[in-house]
Amino acid sequence: MPVEIGKIDRELKKLWAEAGGAMTRASLINLAIYSEAPGSLPQNTEIIFKITEDHACRAIVIGANPGAPENRVEAWISAHCHVSRAGSKQICSEQLSFLLEGPSAKLLPNIVFSQLDSDLPLYLWWQGEFHHPMDAQLWAWVDRVIYDSQAWSNFGTQLGRVEAAQAEAKQRIVLCDLNWTRLVQFRLALAQFFDHPSSHHRFNEIESVEIDFAPGYRSTAMLLAGWLASQLRWTLEKDSNGNSLVFRNQAAREIRVNSQEKAGEPISRVGLKCNSIEYRVTHAPKADLLKVTVEGSNAERKCLMPAGSNDPVRLMSEELMRGGPHSVYLRSMNAVRNLL
C-alpha cells in the first residue's frame, strides 16, 4: 500500500486495526536492507517474506539510485503473515519499503531512524559495495552490519571503509559477513572430527589442506583457510600463486593449503591430511547434506551432516539465528586479509 512518509505510523496503525485482532504483530529486531541494484525492491520483499517466517522483525527495505537525475521518494507499507508453528494464529511482521532516487538517497539515515521500532536492535544488511565516505550518522545507530564480502570487487578497500565507519561510530558494531556464514556447516563438520580429547594431538599432525571452491568463491575458500590458520595458530609463510599457501604450525611443521576452482557449491570439498588419516567433507551440487568421512589405514567412517545453502534467505536466517560477536571471523579474516 503506497503511503506518505510522514504518515507511515498512522497507516501502520490502520493496517493492524483492519486486521481486527485476527493477526498478531511480532518484532524482535529492526532489519534494514539497502540496495542500489535495479529491481531490488521486489526481490528483497520476497526475501523478507521468507525471513519473517522464522525471524519476526520490522523490515525497512530501501531501493536507492543515488545517480538518478530526478529526485523521487516513494514509500509503501505491507505485512508478511505466516501461520505460527504453535497453532493456527497468523503471525505478522511489517515491512516499510522506500524508493529513493537522486539526491534524496542521502536521506537514508533520516528515513531509517524515523521508522525504527523503538528499543529493538538495528541490523543493517548492506547489499553490494560500500561508498566513500560512509555516513557516520547512520553507522552510529547500527548494532550489526551485514554484508557479503564474496561480491566485493576489492576486499581491502571495502573492509577499510567498514572499519573506518566502525571506528567513527559511537557504539560497537558487529561485523557480519555472509561469506563467513556460508562456512558454518563446513566449520561444524570439520570441528566435530576433533571433539574427542584423544584426537587433539592430530592438530599438530595436519600436513595439508585441500579446498575446492566454485568460480567466484575464492574468498570463501581463503576465509576457511584463515579460520584453520587462526584457530590452530599457524603463521602464513608463503603465498606462491594465491591458491597455494604454506603455513607453519607452532611446532614449525609445514602445512600446505591448496585450493582449486571447481564448479559446484561455493565450497564443495575440504580435505585435511594428518599422517595416515584423511578427514574429508564434501558437498555435492544442490545437496542439503554434507558427506563427512574419516579415512584411516584400517577403516573408513562416513556420515551425513546438514549442509548450508547459498540462498540469501538461508544465509540470513543462519546469521540471525547465530548472532554472537564474530570475534573468530575477525581473527580468521585478518589471518588471510592480504590474500582476499
Binding site: 566449520r187 561444524l188 570441528a191 571433539d195 574427542h196 587433539h200 584457530q231 554472537g324
Partner: peptide, 16 residues
Amino acid sequence: MNPLREGLATRSVPQA
C-alpha cells in the same frame, strides 16, 4: 578444548 569449536556453539559439545 577443541579450538575449531570456538564461536560455533555456546553449549558444551557432546562427545562420541
